[in-house]
Write a protein that binds this DNA or RNA. Structure first.
Length: 575
RNA sequence: CGGGGCGUAGCGCAGCCUGGUAGCGCGUCUGCCUUGGGCGCAGAAGGUCAGGAGUUCAAUUCUCCUCGCCCCGACCA
């Protein structure tokens, strides 16, 4: 392909809309253009790269035995009401009506649709297992689209759904997908970290996320420095220490005036005591009922864990009025002693003595609190947000925080959807049973951008060879020089005959412009053909990711380039 | 939805405070020149100053409203 016949609108300056490197580079290298917030057009180069990612995904899904289908993007709203997820996902769903005034939604995901299909077509255990996948555009009315393709309102996702006769069989399907994902990301040239994750609105029992480590990542994760434990912060546990006993003697609980001291910091300073000695008491509304949540003063509540522990559908911090009503004191003075609403405490508070807590009256706190002696805590659970330096829950190591971009997520769903939507089969014993499901997503467009986020330098993109829009870029430094052009054309012919995608920069531009744009585009191998080299009988080869410039005799040009290309394929080979 | 910022030529920005109908760099087009890291010279095109209303003799500039975009937060498969 010739540059002058392609559409590659490179930008010299950084568009102000872009914040992170991958987004800036996608705009500058002429890969994408914005139509509106969270809506992007893929220009030819990005489209080529996208197709390569999709091809890898397809090959690995097929290898794992999944069958490709294509489901509608437009769904009757009714099916979502039937599963109960219209309520759960209504905020992210685009609602529309057809001309008959029938309510429709644009699909944010496809569990309902595929389960409906399977419920109609799969009747017998003889037809199982089955794993159906598609590569589809999903629509989500994101509260805040961000970072180009990272969080868009419309994006391409590969989603697969497995149906098995039982739990063990479903585990095998899950494992097969997990392994397929490892291969996919490796082949895309991505280094990913697999973490334990929360299942969120998907429901289900267990899930793993495939994370691309990057500062711009939207998810916090922790990983152990000694074992393989890694988890999304939403789910991460940490090793609880022993019960905290701050009192030598078991002194009776006592109320102390603390005028105007509301925050943990203020109170800790007032008592000249470490924040950890305080019991932080937060009032939440769980399904419209107040509940007190107790955590160590130096820790934050993990609302996802809390929601799970309370088995609540809705959870939010109580309003100031609700707090006053529940505790009888203004915000900042809640405490477990004498509180009349249900209480749940973090595991780390179990058996703690000599603590400081709010007194449930204005401008007062209690000291020498022995939680078990002085309060009625209904339940203890792991409720806090893990953080840097916490102990690993699995070993003696400690946890470290990182940022990650979620590119893949595999879920064990169980029978939630099959029961709801009637995906039952007839087993050997003649009984109707719900199929055991798993679902598996890859954000294809996000994966593409992650590749750039993880592989770029100051000058531009550094494409892995497997997803690069073209594998080789040839620069003819002076298009007026006929010999250069002739040699370039011969080289292109040779390379294309060997299945290599080649882009020729045939613009009548000065060399400097071409070099800059070549670095920006980041195609894996660059070939310089210029009079200076030809005078010595050589062409030059520059591998984008390496600093070295090599030369090859004109007669061996294609062989030398192919050698570089082959070498680069080793980076993304699966073992 | 809350907080902040921005909207002037394709891109990056100045002008606005202190009202008098718009400018710079890059890009684009033409010609010359040049050809190893965003070259040089000469000329040119390109603007409903986001939209609407108001104040004023006069609004890019002041006021109000609306829309869009970006960032932070809440939220998130």
């Amino acid at each position: 392909m010739r540059w002058t016949k392609q559409l590659i609108p490179t930008l010299r300056e950084v568009p102000q809309e872009a914040e992170i490197p991958s987004h800036q580079l996608m705009l500058r290298a002429g890969l994408i253009r914005k139509l509106g917030g969270g809506l992007y057009t893929f220009l030819p180069l990005a489209f080529r790269a996208l197709k390569k990612v999709e091809k890898i995904v397809r090959e690995e899904m097929e290898r794992a035995g999944a069958l490709e289908i294509l489901m509608p993007a437009l769904h009757p709203r009714e099916i979502w009401e039937r599963s109960g997820r219209y309520e759960v996902l209504r905020d992210v769903m685009f609602n529309i009506k057809d001309r008959q005034d029938r309510p429709m939604v644009l699909g944010p995901t496809h569990e309902e649709i595929v389960t409906d299909l399977v419920s109609r077509e799969i009747k017998s255990y003889r037809q199982l297992p089955v794993n159906l996948y598609q590569i589809q555009t999903k629509f989500r009315d994101e509260i805040r689209p961000r970072f180009g393709l990272m969080r868009a309102k419309e994006f391409i996702m590969k989603d697969a759904y497995s149906f098995d006769v039982g739990w063990d069989e479903a585990d095998a399907s899950y494992k097969a997908m997990y392994e397929a994902y490892e291969r996919i990301f490796k082949r895309c040239g991505l280094r990913t970290k697999v973490v334990e994750a929360d299942t969120g609105a998907m429901g289900g029992n267990w899930s793993h996320e495939f994370m691309v480590l990057a500062d711009a990542g939207e998810d916090g994760i922790v990983e152990c420095d000694q074992c393989s434990y890694a988890a999304n912060l939403e789910r991460a546990e940490s090793r609880p220490g022993g019960a905290s006993d701050f009192d030598e003697a078991a002194l009776p609980c006592e109320t102390v005036p603390t005028p105007g001291r509301r925050t943990v910091q203020e109170v800790a300073a007032f008592f000249q005591s470490p924040p950890a000695r305080l019991i932080k008491t937060l009032i939440y509304m769980a399904d419209k009922k107040p509940v007190a949540v107790l955590v160590p003063g130096d820790r934050d509540v993990n609302e996802i864990k809390l929601k799970r522990a309370l088995k609540a559908r809705e959870l939010a911090l109580a309003t100031d009025e609700a707090i006053e009503q529940a505790t009888g004191a203004p915000v900042g003075f809640a405490g477990p002693v004498g509180l009349q609403i249900p209480m749940i405490a973090d595991l780390r508070l179990k058996g703690c003595k000599g603590a400081i807590a709010g007194a449930n009256q204005n401008d007062a706190h209690r000291i020498h609190v022995d939680l078990e002696r002085d309060a009625k805590v209904e339940d203890y659970a792991d409720l806090i947000l893990s953080r840097e330096g916490d102990g690993c829950p699995r070993c003696d190591g400690s946890l470290h925080e990182k940022r990650g971009i979620e590119v893949g997520h595999v879920f064990k769903l169980g029978t939630k959807y099959s029961e709801l939507l009637g995906a039952n089969y007839l087993d050997v014993d003649g009984k109707q049973k719900p199929a055991v499901m798993g679902c598996y997503g890859i954000g294809v467009t996000r994966t593409l951008q992650s590749t750039i986020e993880q592989s770029h330098d100051d000058n531009g993109i550094v494409w892995p060879i497997s997803v690069a829009p073209y594998q080789v870029e040839i620069l003819v430094l002076n298009m007026q020089h006929e010999e250069s052009v002739r040699i370039a054309e011969q080289l292109i012919k040779d390379l294309e005959a060997r299945g290599v995608d080649v882009l020729l920069d045939d613009r009548d531009e000065r060399p400097g412009v071409k070099f800059k744009d070549a670095d920006l585009l980041g195609l894996p191998v660059r070939v310089n053909i210029g009079e200076r080299g030809l005078a010595k009988g050589v062409i030059e080869i520059k591998v984008r990711k390496s600093p070295d410039l090599q030369t090859a005799p004109i007669a061996e040009a294609s062989k030398a380039v192919l050698g570089c290309v082959d070498e680069l394929w080793k980076d993304v080979a699966i073992s």
